[in-house]
Each structure stands twice: as structure tokens, then as C-alpha cells.
Nucleic acid binder design. Structure first.
Length: 650
RNA sequence: GCCCAGGUAGCUCAGUGGUAGAGCGCGUCCUUGGUAAGGACGAGGUCGCGGGUUCAAGCCCCGCCCUGGGCUCCA
């Protein structure tokens, strides 16, 4: 047997006998590093892939060792965790059928088919069994088995779902298995060497999931869990889940009295209470002013439109299942609008347009209703009635890049104003192999995609190109904001539409005197006002910046003896246009502070004898605590500054 | 729509077949207190809705509505 050349990540080259395993090379590394390695990246003959540490290396290759700090390493680790889960379930419930068990962004799951559902107690038992098997340090072993033998094995084990997978996914010759104890899985791998690496794990939930994701297939039970190489990392993760719970907009919406959803009224329909209402008012005001400044025209369109219009737009054909049923009178059917586009198009079409008028930018805070299945509704984030900050730009081809840039610039201004620092941009383009699935001419698509790329490039905005992710009517840019705890939210979108101008036969008269079809860009920045509000609540954990806070300051008289002074202070601030409350309850200062703090009011103004005599207020900030006394006028000026600058820190 | 878990006072939740509970909140009174809960008393319920079983149902059974976690869907 000959030697092969191995290049390590640091560039160091070594010569080792053919058949050497990554695990052998690992022995040369310091123990401290080596014991954290879960998988390797190397070339076994078909390019670099992730490989098991005990896979023999047969040819010259680069070898890279991965820990769970590497996303790929963590993925392999979690995948092996899923196998550990399956192995435990096999021990406890040998009668179940096994489905699939991949890693996910946050952990892993495994799917089982079983008569009885798993209960929370079952999960505890399974966790215990997993710990037992982990402690036995079972190796994850790869083996190749001829197809027929594999099928026979799974038939004997009464695993028809696995047979189905082997039949559908293997090459029909050799089948790759991984074993963890008694558990044998048809699996691409790779896996971590043995179960002992999985120091910390937790099973989180069980949920129904259709076999292969098809509604007509039987429903599997999917057990979700997560795992880490150390307890500290698991604790940290669980802590983050708690943090997300703490910020849950549904919980805060109730506690801060911002909005409600009422069974009496129907699912997915939002009631904006006064404190949520004022925030919405401020959001919308900002938006309207900005729209006008940026050359948009504000329009309003009806909530119900004749059904024929939805036929023309194509919604009846393609979007019917998301539309509330028609209302019929004797002659005509009307339907609640799920989108604003047709309305804006009718305004465009109300007169013959000249190229001199373009671009025409029609904007509306348009309330739409979509019939969503009850199972998908979720607080403010997925609702049945919502208001889009919708606009449609109609323009000529040579205007398009400037218009796209203006849209993206607007979206970024919005993110900044509302306190979001980070964002990701995705460009969704067509799949050239599915030309027939798209509306519009190929040249139009090419031009549009080119315009989007040019705009983003010129603006120096990094973006991810999503091949084949475009919707059928045009390519689009999606902007995902990243909130205070690192979660992405898809809100703003800028989309080309080649479909509706065609369907409605939109035209403008160009300089050459001929009629041309305008380009149409659909854009929403908040996306939906409801959804954006939900994200805003979670981003700030309910502690809104001063300019958005429903109550900006609360005056706290120390006793009833200084109520008059408190009233005077509150009155003066209200007069100056601030949202101020007076806590005139018969309570101790401590109690008033606690309540104001829980309501996340930015400033508490403590007023007692001393303040009354000096004409001051003692300012307490919700975030910084007691700031001491200062003249009322000074505080007022500071408040003014925070509101005017829309400061996100207070 | 499907699977699982829920729905009890304004809120959070306890209550395994025998007279509906707690804390917070709310009201009244006492207290007039200097930076995260002062005290007493009181009001407050169609136990999601409808049917069934039972001498008796918040509790058991069936259907529906709604909420949550997922799946599916997402022009």
C-alpha cells in the first residue's frame, strides 16, 4: 500500500499510508482540541464533503477538522442526536415505525408512526433512555449493505416506511446504513464517532407532521429536541428561548394593553386598543409624511370590489382559497379585497397616461382580508385582516433602476427609524428551466433582474441570490430585518409584476407617440402594519422608544398633599404635546414606581414637597433608575429632543 | 384543514363525579408613605358553546368554536 499526501487546514502537509483515517491524524493534535472534533471535511473522490472520522482516506486530499462551532459540524452533531433519540425510542417502543430524522436550524427531530401519541411523560422517559445510551458511548457505525439485503432487513423489522425510503432514495445497488446500538438507519451521514459527545440535550415538543409532508399521507409524530456538546451551551440556548417568550408580542400585547383578538369577533382579527392605536398612528404618520416627501401620491380604494375584477386580475383563479367568499346581491357578486393592486391599477387606468406623467407612485394604507386556515393564525404575525402599506410604481424601462433604488432606500430608512440596525437582503430570480411557469417575456425578466442587481450593487448592499425563488409574476427583493435578539423577520418587499399590466392592458403614450406597456413595481415596507407592530413589540420587548411610547412620562406625586403640584406638572407637559399620565392613586411611591416600571413607561417624574418648592421634578428612567431632581423645563427640553430625534435609546 | 395540548373571575392559574378557589387587578375605608408591591373589608363566575351519560358534571362521552405548539399552505 502506498502513501498519500494530506494537507491540513493550516497548510501543513503530511504523508501517511493509504487508508489512514481522519481519526488517526487527530491523535497528533493536542488532546484538548482533538476531543472536540466531531467530523472532518475531506475529498474521498467526489470533491470535498463531510466525512466520518473513521472513513479511510485513499487519495491525496485536504483534511479539515470540524467542531460544533462550525455550522456544518453542529449539523452533523444534531443529526447524530436525532439518531440517539431514535435509538432510545426503539428501546422503549419497539413497535413504532421510523420515518426520517434530520437536524434543523435549532436542533433536530425524528418522526415516528405509532398508534398512541407520545405524552410529555413519554418524552421524559425517552430523555432518560437517551442519557443511558449516551453513557454507553455507542459508536455510530457506517456500513454498506446490498439493496436486497437492506430491503429484507427492514421488512423483517416491520419498517415499511424505511423500505419506501430505501426504494426511492438509494441507487438500487448498495445501501448505506448507520447503526447506533440496535438502531439501524438508512442514512447519508456522516455522523459523530459515538454518542458520548452528546453531553447535553433536551426534548422540547411533539407535533404532528405528515409523512413526506403530504396531507394525504398518514400523520407522523415528530419529536423535536435540541442538543449541545456542553450543558452550558444548552442552558444558554434554553435561556434564549425564555428570552423569546419574555418578548412574545401576544403576552406583552395583553400586559401593556396594546391590542386584543377576541373570540366573539373571530379569529385573526385585531382590535387595536388605545395604547396600540397611538403607536399605529405614529407609525402611519411617519410613513405618510415620508411617502409625500418621496413623491408618492396617497390614494384610497374600496374594500369590496366586483367579482369580475378579481377574474380579470387572475386572483379568482390563483388566489381563491385565500379569499373570503363572495357576497351576492341579485345581479352582481362582490368580494372583499385580499390585495390592493387591482384598485391602484384602476386609478392608473382612469385616464390615458403620457410618459411625461411617469413614474406614477400610488400609495395606500390598504386594509385587506385574506382567508387563512385557522391553524396558521398567529397573534399579530399571521392574521386574516390587516393593513398593508402598499404602493405601486408605474414607470418606463429607463426609470426602473432609479425607482428600485428609491424603494430600497426608503425601506432602509424605515428600518433605521424604527430602531433596527441589521438586515439581510434576498434577491429572488426565476429558474430558467421553468420558463413556462412565469408570466411575462424572457427579455423583460432579464431586464428586471438586471435592474435589481444593478440597483443593489450600486447601493453597495450585499444580497443573497435565490435562484428559482421568484414568484411567477416577477423577480423581487426581500429585506429581512434582524431584531434585538438576532431573529430575522421578512417584512419589506419590492416586486416586479409582469402579470397585472398585461391582464389589465395598461398603457402609456411614449415620446414616439406609440402606446407602450408600463413596468409595474409592487412594494410594501412595513409589509403589514399589524405584523410590523408585532415585530416592533418583540424587538423592544415592549419598552418602546420615547417617540413611540404610548405614555412617555408618568407623574408620581408622593402623597395626596402634593397632588396639585403633580397635576400642574402633568398639565404643563400635556399642554406641550407630550403623552403624560398622572398617577393620583392612593398608593405608596414604591407601588407607583413598580407599576410604571411594569408598564415600561420611559420616565417617572417623582413629585414631593421638595420638588414643589423648587419647581423641579425628580426623574427616574425606566432603564437607568433615579436620575435626581432637575427643573421641569430642562426635563421638557430633553423629552422634546428625544421625540424629535426619534432616539431609540432613552 | 390535520395531529397534540389547552379554554375556570379583568389577568395568571389551582381544582379527578357531591355547596366553584387563590394571587394580582377592581371598589370602599384606614394609612400620607421619597425610588420595584402598606393594611382591612368587599364586589366579581352561563367553569368556551351545544348535546349526552349520571341521583349528581368544571371534572366522563360526542360535536362545534377559539387559543397554543407543529404539519400543510403562503400571489
Amino acid at each position: 500500500m502506498g502513501n498519500i499526501n494530506i494537507t491540513l487546514k493550516d497548510g501543513k502537509a503530511v504523508q501517511v499510508p493509504q487508508g489512514t483515517k481522519p481519526a488517526d491524524l487527530l491523535k497528533k493534535l493536542p488532546q484538548k482540541i482533538a476531543k472536540r472534533i466531531v467530523v472532518a471535511r475531506a475529498d474521498l473522490g467526489k470533491g470535498e464533503t463531510l466525512v466520518d472520522l473513521d472513513r479511510p482516506l485513499e487519495r491525496d486530499t485536504r483534511v479539515e477538522f470540524l467542531t460544533t462551532d462550525d455550522p456544518d459540524g453542529l449539523f452533523v452533531f444534531r443529526h447524530s442526536s436525532a439518531h440517539l433519540l431514535a435509538a432510545a425510542v426503539l428501546e422503549l417502543y419497539p413497535e413504532v415505525q421510523f420515518g426520517v430524522g434530520p437536524p434543523t436550524d435549532q436542533g433536530f427531530f425524528y418522526e415516528f408512526l405509532r398508534e398512541k401519541p407520545f405524552t410529555p411523560e413519554d418524552l421524559e422517559k425517552i430523555e432518560k433512555k437517551m442519557a443511558e445510551l449516551r453513557n454507553q458511548n455507542l459508536p455510530n457505525q457506517r456500513k454498506l449493505v446490498p439493496f436486497d439485503q437492506a430491503m429484507k432487513l427492514y421488512q423483517e423489522q416491520k419498517q415499511p416506511l424505511k423500505c419506501e425510503l430505501v426504494r426511492d432514495l438509494s441507487d438500487g445497488k448498495m445501501v448505506q446504513f448507520y447503526t447506533t446500538g440496535k438502531f439501524i438507519d438508512f442514512c447519508l451521514g456522516p455522523h459523530i464517532p459515538s454518542t458520548k459527545f452528546i453531553k447535553a440535550f433536551k426534548l422540547l415538543s411533539v407535533a404532528g407532521a405528515y409523512w413526506k409532508g403530504e396531507e394525504s399521507n398518514p400523520q407522523m409524530q415528530r419529536i423535536y429536541g435540541t442538543s449541545f456538546p456542553s450543558q452550558a451551551e444548552l442552558d444558554d440556548h434554553l435561556h434564549k428561548l425564555e428570552e423569546a417568550k419574555r418578548r412574545d408580542h401576544r403576552k406583552l400585547g395583553k400586559e401593556l394593553n396594546l391590542f386584543s383578538i377576541q373570540e366573539e369577533a373571530g379569529a385573526g382579527l385585531i382590535f387595536w386598543h388605545p395604547k396600540g392605536g397611538i403607536i399605529r398612528h405614529l407609525m402611519e404618520n411617519w410613513l405618510r409624511e415620508e411617502l409625500l416627501r418621496r413623491g408618492y401620491d396617497l390614494v384610497y380604494t374600496p374594500h369590496v370590489l366586483r367579482q369580475d375584477l378579481w377574474k380579470t386580475s387572475g386572483h379568482l383563479d390563483y388566489y381563491r382559497e385565500n379569499m373570503f367568499p363572495a357576497m351576492e346581491d341579485e345581479h352582481v357578486a362582490y368580494q372583499l379585497k385580499p390585495m390592493n393592486c387591482p384598485g391602484h391599477i384602476l386609478i392608473y387606468k382612469s385616464s390615458l397616461r403620457s410618459y411625461r406623467e411617469l413614474p406614477i407612485r400610488l400609495a395606500e394604507l390598504g386594509t385587506v382580508y385574506r382567508w387563512e386556515r385557522t391553524g396558521v393564525l398567529h397573534g399579530l404575525l399571521r392574521v386574516r385582516g390587516f393593513t398593508q402599506d402598499d404602493a405601486h410604481v408605474f414607470c418606463t424601462p429607463d426609470q426602473i433602476e432609479a425607482e428600485i433604488e428609491a424603494c430600497v432606500d426608503f425601506a432602509l430608512a424605515l428600518l433605521k427609524t424604527f430602531g433596527f440596525q441589521d438586515y439581510e437582503v434576498e434577491l429572488s430570480v426565476r429558474d430558467p428551466n421553468r420558463a413556462a411557469d412565469y408570466a411575462g417575456k424572457v427579455e423583460d425578466w432579464e431586464q428586471a433582474e438586471g435592474a435589481l442587481v444593478n440597483s443593489l450593487t450600486r447601493m453597495n448592499i450585499p444580497f443573497k441570490r435565490m435562484e428559482g425563488e421568484a414568484v411567477f409574476y416577477g423577480p423581487k427583493i426581500d429585506i429581512k430585518l434582524i431584531d434585538a435578539i438576532g431573529r430575522p423577520w421578512q417584512l419589506s418587499t419590492v416586486q416586479f409584476d409582469f402579470n397585472l399590466p398585461e391582464r389589465f392592458k395598461l398603457e402609456y403614450v411614449a415620446a414616439d407617440g406609440a402606446r407602450h406597456r408600463p413596468l409595474m413595481v409592487h412594494r410594501a415596507l412595513f409589509g403589514s402594519v399589524e405584523r410590523f407592530f408585532g415585530v416592533l413589540i418583540e424587538h423592544y420587548a415592549g419598552a418602546f422608544p420615547v417617540w413611540l411610547a404610548p405614555v412617555q412620562a408618568i407623574v408620581l406625586p408622593i402623597s395626596e398633599k402634593v397632588l396639585d403640584y403633580g397635576e400642574k406638572v402633568a398639565g404643563q407637559l400635556k399642554q406641550a404635546g407630550f403623552r403624560v399620565q398622572l398617577d393620583d392613586r392612593n398608593e405608596k411611591l414604591q407601588a407607583k414606581i413598580r407599576d410604571a416600571q411594569l408598564q415600561k413607561i420611559p420616565f417617572m417624574l417623582v413629585c414631593g414637597k421638595k420638588e414643589e418648592e423648587a419647581g423641579t421634578v425628580s426623574v427616574r428612567s425606566r432603564s437607568k433608575g433615579d436620575l435626581g431632581p432637575r427643573p421641569l423645563a430642562d426635563f421638557q427640553a430633553e423629552l422634546q429632543r428625544l421625540v424629535e430625534t426619534k432616539a431609540t435609546q432613552a
